[in-house]
């Protein structure tokens, strides 16, 4: 498998959640796997995230959220991204997300959700598989 040749990924932190350990570890692992990574920094609104995704012309957006606000903020990011970029932008998320929220979040336009304990290798493989197929 080609290892992430030149795919651009935005890692973003929606809402007020300051827990950035996961976002930064994933960002660094993706960079080490050959992706071009843009990190949004903290406290981004869905509008800011969508605007950055467009401006940076990314292939995928990864959202990290541990605050419990995922049911409100993630669908909003999905809606704005789909409106701006259509279906061809991949949207994935990770954090403290209860099992029961996963199906509704996927229905709202989030392509994949990674739960605690996921390896960065699993995320790299997922991105390569989905982006190479596109």
């Amino acid at each position: 498998m080609t290892q992430g040749n030149k795919f651009r990924i935005l890692i973003a932190k929606p809402g007020l959640d300051g827990h950035d350990r996961g976002a930064k570890v994933v960002a660094r692992a993706l960079r080490d796997a050959g992706f071009e990574v843009i990190y949004s920094g903290l406290r981004q609104t869905p509008e800011q995230i969508a605007a950055t995704a467009v401006q940076e012309d990314v292939d995928a957006v990864g959202l990290s959220i541990l605050s419990g606000a995922h049911n409100v903020l993630l669908p909003e990011v999905a809606r704005l991204l789909r409106a701006e970029q259509g279906e061809d932008i991949l949207l994935f998320a990770g954090g403290i997300i209860p099992e029961q929220d996963i199906a509704p979040l996927k229905a709202s336009g989030v392509d994949e959700i990674f739960l605690p304990g996921t390896t960065s290798t699993a995320i790299v493989e997922y991105l390569n598989r989905r982006l190479c197929a596109a």
Partner: peptide
């Protein structure tokens, strides 16, 4: 506040 959307009473 707009930044509080989704966060009220959560954490």
């Amino acid at each position: 506040h707009a930044m509080s959307t989704g966060e009220v009473g959560k954490c």
